[in-house]
């Protein structure tokens, strides 16, 4: 599904990150573990198409993300990659449902309100569909953010530090939720974190050093 080779990136004036090659298989979530400063967020942004690597390739299906730019990169990202950030953010002027539909609109896809309702229901937040996003609890916000990431049936679901701010109980629940959601949408789940509690829950792991 996703395959990287010889990925390399450096910020101006600092040492280069060389990332190990990554390959995901369908149905097998990947955990990327790393302490601060190991290029964790950089890798996430590279995989998400938010940064462009200096060298190497990122293949998703038949497309090399590293070769896309401009509008085609924006569109590819919007349609194929769902990202769940550590802190859920939304377009505050819009309601929950409108935020989900925005995920359809921005990469130029047809609006799919029934999928929005469906996802909200499956993630247990259908009652907040018409609410303003800042009226939700943090847990609800996270669920809505996951629903939004899945709106375009992405091939990859990237999660950035989903559990680091949570206690043990909620940590497990969130990881379970992400696995379930990825499975539901047929997406490959990649979790990037420094949270060692997740170690035991994944067969497929990569450690950044």
């Amino acid at each position: 599904m996703l395959q990287t080779t010889a990925l390399q990136f450096s910020y101006a004036g600092s040492r280069a990150f060389h990332f190990p090659d990554i390959a995901t298989q369908k149905g097998s979530p990947l955990l990327v573990l790393g302490e601060s400063g190991t290029g964790k967020t950089t890798l996430l942004h590279l995989l998400g198409g938010l940064l462009r690597p200096q060298s190497g390739s990122i293949r998703i299906g038949d497309t090399d993300l590293a070769k896309l730019s401009g509008r085609s990169l924006d569109q590819f990202r919007g349609q194929n990659i769902g990202i769940v950030f550590q802190q859920p953010h939304f377009v505050e002027a819009l309601s929950v449902k409108e935020n989900l539909l925005l995920a359809n609109y921005l990469p130029g896809k047809k609006l799919d309100p029934s999928r929005a309702e469906d996802l909200l229901q499956k993630l247990g937040v259908s009652s907040s569909s018409a609410k303003s996003t800042n009226r939700l609890s943090v847990g609800e916000q996270q669920r809505v953010a996951i629903a939004r990431a899945l709106m375009n049936k992405p091939r990859i679901l990237l999660a950035d530090e989903p559990s680091s701010a949570l206690d043990d109980k909620h940590c497990e629940a969130v990881v379970a939720l992400l696995r379930e959601a990825a499975e539901l949408a047929g997406a490959s789940l990649i979790i990037v974190t420094h949270d060692n509690r997740l170690k035991s829950q994944f067969d497929h792991q990569i450690h950044l050093t």
């Binding site: 924006d74 990202r77 950030f85 939304f90 377009v91 925005l102 921005l106 990469p107 939004r148």
Partner: peptide, 18 residues
């Protein structure tokens, strides 16, 4: 105030011109 929101929209597939 909305910088993060704008970046978020970019990750969701919005182009800079959007």
């Amino acid at each position: 105030g909305r910088a993060y929101e704008l970046a978020l929209m970019r990750t969701m597939g919005a182009g800079g011109n959007t």
